[in-house]
Design a protein around this nucleic acid. Structure first.
Length: 783
RNA sequence: GCCGAAGUGGCGGAAUUGGUAUACGCACACGACUCAAAAUCGUGCGGGGAAACCCAUGAGAGUUCAAGUCUCUCCUUCGGCACCA
């Protein structure tokens, strides 16, 4: 037997798979389909991350199992290649982003292939390919047509380092999600996608999905649905009314004052009537100078000022209420105005205490009645519309033209794609314009409508655009008439199982659900939800629990590990490390255990292939040896088949591997292992370690690949244990053990137990008050 | 503050869902092989105790014949949201 040479074996089979393309799939209506998806990677300059390997291996195992269960499995891969890091690298080095992307995807592709993942490489996509982003642009035009893409001058979150506008989802604790710089406010015309139009459905339709509960909860929190009522408060001696939003109309009788957000449009009008105009103006300008972090920090004291001279009237009891403006009321939620009920609401209470406002005991009213009499039932969401334009180069150009006469004119669909022109300087400008604005030849064009001189839009789309629909393109990547043919979509979609990171829950996952629903409404996709099931992997962290990053120099390079121990060992190691859904700290020292396991699997072949006739005879005589513990080996094997099968589906890869280790330990102890039994083991291990198992499988003179062999089925009959160790307990503590039969009766066991010295000792003449009997498990004497 | 997840050996972690706590692996110790080392194989490995036994699953109570698992109170860690009316 040759020593295990992972380099030779892995190269050999990868070459064969490369030429035979065993995982290339066709739409085959006779077969049940299984569409498995992992988040396509951003091809960064630091190469494949061990975290990619974790999630890709997990889904690879599931796919390999499903193929062998008869499914037609689509497991595709591509590149989400637009984005800032590539562009920043281009700025630094002067190398074109498209070239950087090519270099990086080549590296990623090589690394993924070296891991033996069973992707259908014939369906590889790249979001930066004009043939791909033609359709990203096309979908944008559909949004525009339906009025769901609009341009608006607004205060946006501006990252002064990246020189880019950010979506709400990209601002974390007032900082840029990408670089950590404190976000500034900037007035700018922006393209917006009206995701809020879909808020209700994005919330409700989660019910239909099989997403992990924590994912549903996080999305629901983010969408922030709350049901309540709008109630108008008349202003004394003024034709204007204050419309407030409340989730507790039943507390209307406890209202003691009204609060407007400082930015509320009514403030400008009411200020003309008040006696403290100057103070109010000063207050408002002070607020404007605060950053979001300063203003929204719940720990800082609430501030406010009364509009002296105007009063609002409570419609329920005609109380005259003071009107305040305060920073704790947000302009962009609800109506930007609240009715304050200090007896009920903690924030109102704090504020009332601070400013000596009355606190009135409340009697709860009938909610429905209040709404009927004084207001309108309404549902509000925290979700904001999606700021969709970026002032950068490396993204899809937004396909519209600005004409002085005709305004915003969509690029005619037949002119798509609007390709990114080559640029010399990728640096964005301080005034917030995309580098594209500097390319006059590209910018200056003709209006498709009136044929007069016009200018192209120079903003590009965010990196979330291409990933919002990529799973649809996999169904039909070569189509140049549609983003994907309906027939293909009907066969493959929805995605059956999508695994990805929790960090995308309120970004990519939400955005793509939104796009999908929009396309569904246009009749372009067959289902209203894109993904049936969504699971999530835990992150792999560097020592000390930190994120791995190039700048910290704590990145683990998979190439080195593959070279030293092999891809199969790395796969096993990452799956064995710990529970798949939990984050874990990388520890290179423990890989040796997985390598030892793989080597012992390799060595076990000797028992099979040793001797000239070893192979065929052991196949024929099927003896079922007993394990040293006296259990039938068949029983252990069938238990393992059950465990591995169930654990794969439940993503409990760590325990699946441990059960295979246990089986291997048994195999090693047994002299006359028969070939069928060993082959079952190899077939179970194959999804985890595809190279070594394929090699062993062929050494065992099997003609076809192990990866198309049937998935082992366990036999219920063989799972029945008839021997059992029966515990004898005294007061719930184990004091003895009987080797017995699972069918033994209570009387029988009692008789034996009461004769055992170690039991007699404990009973010692005490009265037996009660006996608990669990068949095949235990007898408990209560004394 | 609210929502969610989790606290088990020196370490990563198991535990048929209420029935032998610490599977599997790492590390460690001893032994075999070797001139020697590495690798490999074998044995041991929660704590206390000479033993009988006793004590241990973040802390404390409770339910139960029996609790890592169920209930309550509290503590800690990690994620998410956060002045959302």
């Amino acid at each position: 037997m040759n020593p295990y040479d992972h380099i030779k074996i892995e190269k050999k089979w990868q070459k064969i798979w490369e030429s035979k393309k065993p995982n290339k799939v066709k739409e085959d209506t006779k077969k049940k389909k299984f569409y498995a998806l992992i988040e396509f990677p951003y091809p960064s300059g630091s190469g494949l991350h061990v975290g990619h390997i974790r999630s890709n291996t997990a889904m690879d195992i599931i796919c390999r199992k499903r193929r062998r269960e008869g499914y037609n499995v689509l497991y595709p891969i591509g590149w989400d290649a637009f984005g800032l890091p590539t562009e920043n690298y281009a700025i630094k080095t002067g190398i074109q982003p498209s070239i950087v992307t090519k270099t990086n995807t080549d590296i990623f592709r090589r690394q993924l292939k070296a891991m033996g993942f069973s992707f259908d490489w014939s369906r590889e996509i790249n979001t930066t390919d004009p043939k791909y982003y033609k359709w990203t642009q096309w979908i944008f035009l559909q949004f525009l047509k339906k009025g769901l893409a609009y341009k608006k001058k607004m205060t946006i979150n501006w990252c002064p380092k990246d020189l880019i506008g950010l979506a709400n989802e990209e601002v974390v604790n007032g900082k840029c999600d990408r670089c950590g710089t404190i976000v500034e406010k900037k007035e700018k015309e922006q393209w917006i996608l009206a995701i809020t139009k879909y808020a209700e459905r994005l919330d409700k339709d989660l019910d239909e999905t099989d997403f992990l509960e924590k994912i549903k909860i996080q999305q629901r929190n983010w969408i922030g649905k709350s049901e309540g009522a709008e109630i108008d408060f008349i202003i004394n001696g003024d034709e204007n009314k204050i419309k407030i939003f409340t989730t507790r109309p039943d507390t209307l009788f406890g209202v003691t004052y009204i609060v407007l957000a400082p930015e509320h449009s009514l403030v400008k009008k009411l200020i003309l009537k008040v006696s403290n105009k100057l103070e109010i103006e000063k207050y408002i300008s002070d607020i404007k100078n605060k950053t979001d972090i300063e203003r929204t920090d719940a720990k800082t004291d609430k501030t406010g000022i009364e509009l002296i001279g105007v009063k609002a009237i409570n419609p329920a009891n005609n109380d005259e209420l003071p009107i305040w403006i305060a920073d704790y009321v947000l302009a962009d939620y609800g109506t930007g105005a609240v009715m304050a009920v200090p007896a009920h609401d903690e924030r109102d209470h704090d504020f009332a205490t601070k400013y000596n406002l009355p606190i009135k005991e409340i009697v709860l009213a009938d909610k429905k009645e209040i709404i009927e009499k004084y207001g309108t039932a309404i549902t509000k969401f925290k979700l904001r519309d999606w700021i969709f334009s970026r002032q950068r180069y490396w993204g899809e150009p937004i396909p519209v033209i600005h004409c002085e006469k005709c305004g915003v004119v969509p690029v005619p669909e037949k002119e798509l794609p609007i390709k990114l022109p080559k640029v010399k300087n990728y640096t964005p400008s301080e005034n917030g314009e995309s580098p594209l604005a500097g390319i006059e030849k590209w910018v200056n064009t003709k209006c498709p409508n009136c044929k007069e001189k016009a200018k192209r839009e120079t903003d590009t789309m965010p990196n979330w655009a291409g990933s919002s629909w990529y799973y649809l393109r996999y169904a039909d990547i070569k189509n140049n008439k549609k983003f994907a043919d309906k027939k293909n979509l009907e066969y493959w979609t929805p995605v059956d199982w999508y695994n990805g990171g929790m960090e995308h829950t309120t970004l990519h996952l939400l955005y793509s659900r939104f796009w999908h629903k929009f396309l569904f409404d246009l009749g372009l996709v067959p289902t209203s939800e894109p993904y049936k099931k969504r699971t999530s992997h835990g992150m792999i962290l560097a020592e000390g629990g930190e994120k791995m990053s190039k700048s910290k120099g704590n990145v683990i390079n998979p190439d080195e590990i593959i070279k030293i121990v092999g891809a199969d060992t790395l796969r096993i190691h990452e799956m064995f490390m710990g529970p798949f859904d939990q984050s874990i700290i990388w520890d290179s020292n423990t890989i040796s255990g997985s390598r030892r396991f793989i080597e012992r699997v390799w060595k076990l072949q000797e028992k099979m292939t040793a001797g000239e006739s070893g192979l065929s005879t052991s196949h024929a005589t099927k003896i079922d040896p007993l394990s040293p513990k006296g259990q039938s080996l068949d029983l252990i094997i069938h238990k393992t088949i059950k465990k591995v099968s169930e654990d794969i589906e439940g993503m409990r890869f760590n325990t699946a591997i441990s059960s295979m280790m246990i089986l291997l330990n048994e195999f090693e102890k047994i002299e006359n292992l028969n070939r069928d039994q060993y082959e079952i083991f190899i077939r179970l291990l194959a999804p985890f370690a595809p190279h070594i198992t394929e090699e062993i499988w062929s050494n065992l003179k099997n003609k076809k690949s192990v990866h198309i062999s049937d998935w082992p089925q366990f036999d219920h009959a063989k799972l029945v244990e008839n021997t059992a160790k029966i515990m004898i307990q005294i007061n719930g503590k184990v004091r003895g053990m009987i080797d017995g039969n699972i069918e033994m009766t209570e009387e029988n066991i009692k008789k034996i137990a009461l004769n055992m010295d170690e039991i007699k000792k404990w009973i010692n003449g005490n009265e037996i008050k009660k006996v608990i009997f669990v068949k095949g498990k235990l007898v408990n004497f209560v004394i």
